[in-house]
């Protein structure tokens, strides 16, 4: 603690850094404390609010599961194999982070809209994306998959490939070596990537609103209440969302923190 104020430079750095922390913490704190428990409870009882929060959680979870199924193998390949075009693949994984999310929504509409090839193909299977829950899922998937893939890749990179080699010589097939060595050792990174991705999916607005304004996810509902009724009616939903996301984040820190202690 004393080291924080060891000299004048550090005191100045502490002051400057604190400004940034306050900038984040103060508005959050204001929002969380502005709505009393009674108002929050009433908001929770609101059918529409509950429905949209449920939908948000659900859609983000499905997106995370899809990304897990395809993204963990991809992450493993990126961590283990050098192949031509690897940099390009890594770039593609990061693109969703840098494009405006509303633009991502438009891009998805161009690929999965009603009159597109993919849109019609999935239509035959009874899946439609525009103004429907599957649209929310793919919007969330698109903007948040980077978190899972990058997290998992870092996890696999930290596993010494020699461990897999030894497992192979001891009689494990590549499949078995993956499940009994690489995966459990990378699991913590994968899990933290999943939680980050899920949390990022929950908060998605831009891409979702373009693909599916209805059914309304929580951020869209929040926006609509704000536009139609003003601050007082939207604030409790904001409070709820912030509290839920904070809880998620604390859970994440606990999960990864435990790992650090063990390592």
């Amino acid at each position: 603690m004393r080291a924080l104020f060891a000299d004048r430079m550090r005191v100045l750095f502490v002051v400057l850094g604190s400004l940034l922390i306050l900038f984040v913490a103060w508005p959050l704190l204001r929002t969380v404390t502005a709505s009393g428990p009674v108002v929050l409870w009433r908001t929770l009882l609101d059918e529409e609010v509950r429905g949209s929060i449920g939908l948000t959680f659900h859609a983000s979870l499905i997106a995370t599961v899809i990304a897990f199924v395809c993204g963990v193998p991809l992450a493993y390949l990126l961590a283990r194999v050098d192949f031509p075009g690897k940099r390009l693949i890594e770039g593609i994984i990061d693109v969703p982070i840098v494009v405006p999310h509303s633009a991502a929504g438009i891009a998805l509409l161009m690929a999965f809209g009603r009159r597109t090839l993919l849109g019609q193909a999935f239509g035959l299977l009874g899946l439609k994306f525009v103004s429907a829950a599957p649209g929310i899922v793919i919007a969330m998937l698109f903007v948040s998959l980077s978190f899972l893939v990058n997290g998992a890749r870092e996890g696999f990179e930290a596993v010494n490939p020699r461990l897999e080699n030894v497992a192979r010589t001891l009689g494990a097939s590549p499949w078995r070596a993956f499940w009994s060595v690489s995966f459990p050792l990378a699991w913590r990174s994968i899990l933290s990537g999943m939680i980050l991705m899920w949390a990022r999916g929950l908060s998605e607005f831009g891409a979702v609103i373009i693909l599916a304004y209805h059914p309304m996810v929580a951020p869209v509902l929040l926006y609509e209440r704000f536009e139609s009724y003003g601050l007082d009616y939207s604030r409790p939903i904001a409070t709820l969302m912030i509290l839920i996301c904070l809880a998620t984040f604390v859970a994440l820190r606990l999960v990864t923190g435990r790992g650090e202690k063990e390592a």
Binding site: N165, T169, S173
Partner: peptide, 30 residues
């Protein structure tokens, strides 16, 4: 033949023990 069908044991300089298993678990792996 793939490594798992050769019946060849391998010991690395840096040990390469499975960190998520205890000593007994490491030995019993094969």
């Amino acid at each position: 033949a793939p490594p798992e069908r050769r019946g060849i044991g391998f010991v690395y300089q840096d040990y390469a023990l499975f960190p998520h298993l205890n000593v007994a678990g490491n030995i019993a792996f094969g």
